[in-house]
Design a protein around this nucleic acid. Structure first.
Ligand code: MN
Ligand code: MN
Length: 544
DNA sequence: CAGGATGAAG
DNA sequence: TTCACACGTTCCG
DNA sequence: GAACGTGTGTCTCTTCATCCTGTT
């Protein structure tokens, strides 16, 4: 993993990276493969380099079908030889059946217009519609589409096997082989945590299948297609694997939301009831309430109050329980609205973002400042707790391209590292924070961390923050993030302002017209009150 | 012909 | 694979 | 005016080529 931007990049980098992936899969993950995946490996291995190169080039691209005349791979010796070999091994089909949409995707608007012999200047989607009306929705044979595309078309097989390999290797579907080259070029750098071959993202072939099924349901949902009965039945089964259970919960949240949109509250409630991670229990209570099932809603709301799993759940049952009781004949309880340090600002709209307008306003008062939102405190956290975040716990790392441990998104993340965070916090009370930050910064600069965006990070601002806010108060903030990062990594005020002529600082949450405090923001402001941290909400209005 | 969207490439 | 926000609707004192 | 739901723009590594579309 070279960190220098060297000029001599391996010209066959894509092939060698692909082969490395195949090697890892066939040495470590054979037990997770289906018969057809093994068949692919078998055939791929026997190919000459030319054919391997072409297959990898095509399968790494997004499209399913490729026009032979559009392929320009000067590093491949003979395209014809390659296509012949791939066809022989059934890794590629020449001139497959194509639908009207496939044909349209293979032609430019100009070509399509000429092929349809249409005059004027229709849009491409109009041309596609014409083609669909001519050919229907089903795929047609070569002899039929040949008059539109007079060149050979290639269709590489085993795309689903390659997707499975990616999932098994990375543990997710959003990373792909480009990670290898981007990492080799030093464009993305990853922490150098120890890896052992026994730690794998998946250990059971059923888990891989289930992940792929969840992903498929997710994609259907993007087109507002609800899961069928069989899929729903599977969705109701809790998963032992923590990451899968998290994925299942997220999916249930999305499916439930769609069911609510369709006014199918009882189905939504049944789904929510099967999932216990936030915010599904809250949605369960709400859907019961909306079905007028107030006793049940109250019952589940009490369960929630007994063991809230997130700061949001805690806040929810406090405000929602009285509302249910009211429906059951209870008294009207008026909760006093929370009061925070606030000011009203009347500012002319100069077209800039309102946050910048408030900075300008404070400049006139002797302050300088930045619009940083969560960035400053998260970066500070990422730097100070680097070793704890990347602690080599069992099962945390399965491949070299992780920006966070595998359990990062689960509630178990902070629980499993509780002792580590505690010790680190104690230690940080006794050190010079500025020196500590400078050390961590230079040691880890550029390496991916879930709390840090290096592109935007300005160490001068981090230092300034640490000079202005007393160390023990900063560490109180860090402590909250340590023990519930999910809830406390967001909601910080928009602005960090510092007074030029004194040591004063101010954290400002800007609220333009129509904007309201979010729960995460209220949480922090409440804590700032109790910690004694200087903050202000600036409610901006426009002159009438 | 400019500007945006998309995707391939390293 | 996130977070913050704008905007619209509904509810309620 | 709260509370709530929903849609959107921002982010993914950067650069370059190609295609599409809508404006002159
Ligand atoms: Mn903000
Ligand atoms: Mn704001």
């Amino acid at each position: 993993m070279a960190q220098n931007l060297s000029n001599d990049v391996d010209p066959l980098y894509y092939l060698h990276n692909f082969n490395q992936l195949m090697e890892t899969i066939s040495t470590l993950h054979l037990d997770l493969l289906r018969p057809q995946d093994l068949k692919f490996l078998e055939h791929y291995r026997q190919l000459e380099t030319d054919a391997q190169q072409l297959y990898v080039r095509l399968i790494c691209r997004r499209a399913n079908f490729f026009r032979l005349d559009k392929l320009t791979y000067p590093e491949i010796g003979s395209l014809d030889n390659a296509t012949d070999l791939l066809s022989e091994h059934e890794l590629l089909k020449m001139n497959p059946n194509l639908t009207a949409i496939d044909i349209s995707n293979l032609l430019t608007a100009k070509e399509l217009k000429a092929a349809l012999q249409i005059k004027g200047s229709p849009t491409k989607s109009a041309l596609t519609d014409t083609l669909i009306s001519e050919l229907g929705d089903t795929a047609v044979e070569h002899s039929v589409w040949q008059r539109f595309i007079p060149v050979p078309v290639l269709f590489p097989h085993y795309r689903d096997s390659l997707e499975r390999f990616r999932l098994i290797y990375f543990g997710n579907l959003y990373q792909d082989l480009s990670q290898f080259v981007v990492s080799d070029l030093g464009i993305m750098q990853f922490e150098n945590y120890p890896l052992d071959q026994n730690t794998r993202a998946f250990n059971r072939t059923e888990d891989v299948d289930r992940y792929l099924l969840f992903d498929q349901i997710n994609q259907q949902l993007e087109d507002a297609v609800l899961p069928n009965d069989e899929q729903l039945k599977i969705l109701l089964c809790p998963m032992y694997n923590q990451r899968l259970e998290l994925k299942r919960n997220r999916l249930i949240k999305a499916v439930g939301q769609q069911l609510e949109r369709n006014k199918n509250l009882s189905a939504a409630a049944e789904l929510y009831a099967s999932a216990s991670l936030p915010p599904n229990r809250e949605r369960h209570v709400r859907t019961l309430f909306n079905q007028q099932l107030f006793e049940q809603a109250l019952d589940h709301c009490h369960q929630l109050a007994e063991q809230p799993l997130s700061a949001d759940e805690e806040m929810f049952c406090k405000s929602f329980t009285p509302r249910i009781l009211r429906k059951l004949g209870g008294p009207v309880v008026r909760r006093p609205t929370e009061q925070f340090n606030s000011e009203q600002l009347v500012l002319d709209d100069d077209g800039q973002r309102v946050e910048l307008q408030v900075i300008t306003h404070y400049r006139a008062l002797g302050y300088d400042g930045i619009w940083c939102e969560n960035e400053l405190f998260n970066t500070l956290f990422g730097l100070l707790f680097w070793q704890q975040i990347f602690a080599p716990l069992e099962g945390a790392f399965s491949h070299p391209y992780q920006q966070a441990p595998l359990d990062f998104n689960s509630p178990a993340f902070s629980q499993r590292r509780h002792r580590l965070f505690q010790n680190r916090l104690q230690q940080l009370h006794k050190v010079n924070l500025l020196e500590e930050i400078a050390g961590q910064y230079s040691e880890h600069l550029g390496i991916a961390n879930p709390f840090i965006n290096w592109k935007r990070c300005d160490p001068a601002h981090i230092s300034l923050l640490c000079q202005r806010i007393p160390q023990h108060k900063l560490l109180m903030i860090m402590e909250k993030i340590c023990f519930d990062p999910q809830a406390y990594r967001s909601g910080f005020p928009d602005l960090f302002l510092w007074h030029s002529a004194s040591d004063d600082y101010l954290l400002v949450e800007v609220k333009g017209p129509g904007d309201q405090l979010q729960n995460s923001q209220k949480r922090w402001l409440r804590l700032f009150d109790s910690f004694g941290i200087q903050y202000q909400i600036s409610w901006v209005t426009r002159p009438t």
